[in-house]
Simulated assay, not measured.
Amino acid sequence: MIVNVHMDEEDRRTLDALARMWERRDAPPADLAERMIAAVAVDDLSREYALLTEVSAGEVAVRSEQERLTLQFSDETTSVLLHVSATESGARRVDGWSEPSVLAARLSQDAREWAAELSDEGRFAFADVTPGLSSVRLIVRLDGELREFITPQFEV
């Protein structure tokens, strides 16, 4: 709905006086816009672009029963280490460690999900995972608040 309002000079002076009064009484912090942009950007970066570093890998060119892969993800506040290994059945086991400790963990592949077995000190594990493109979603407590951490996709 568009409304055309005719403002005369007295209306403009009144609005200018109100704006000046509110700027004196309840001025926003000078860096409010920059802080809000940074906060949104950091939140978005931690969700979408966690740093992925391959720490070590077994025989990259050959898949075998002994294949092992270690991945590390970090976003400045949460650090996750994942160790992927093949099982005798051909499935994968994914062991993980997180700082801060994990309250809940899920591994996702398209429409499938696995819930982790949690243990003390930030450890968690997913058993019998089908090989394929995966991501891990963690819930951690940081400074008294619950926080979600999602890894980029990786091959299991």
Rank of each mutant, 00 (worst) to 15 (best):
S64C: 05
G132V: 07
V3A: 13
V60F: 09
D16E: 08
A17P: 04
G144F: 03
E59A: 14
S56L: 05
S85C: 04
M7N: 08
P29G: 11
R25F: 07
T78Q: 13
R13T: 13
A127T: 09
T78Y: 14
S64R: 09
D120A: 07
T78C: 15
G122I: 02
A105R: 00
L118I: 03
V42D: 15
A104I: 02
R63L: 11
T151W: 03
S56Q: 08
T130N: 01
A91Q: 07
P131T: 04
W97F: 08
V42F: 13
P28E: 11
A38L: 12
E54D: 10
W22F: 09
T87Q: 15
D120L: 12
G58C: 08
T78E: 14
R47T: 14
S85D: 03
H6I: 15
S74D: 13
D128W: 09
E9N: 06
V156Q: 00
T53R: 08
S56G: 12
E23H: 11
R147Y: 14
S85W: 01
T70S: 07
T130C: 00
Q153T: 09
H6F: 14
S119P: 01
R147C: 13
L45K: 12
S108C: 04
D44T: 13
A33I: 14
L81M: 11
P131G: 04
F149C: 05
A17T: 15
A27M: 10
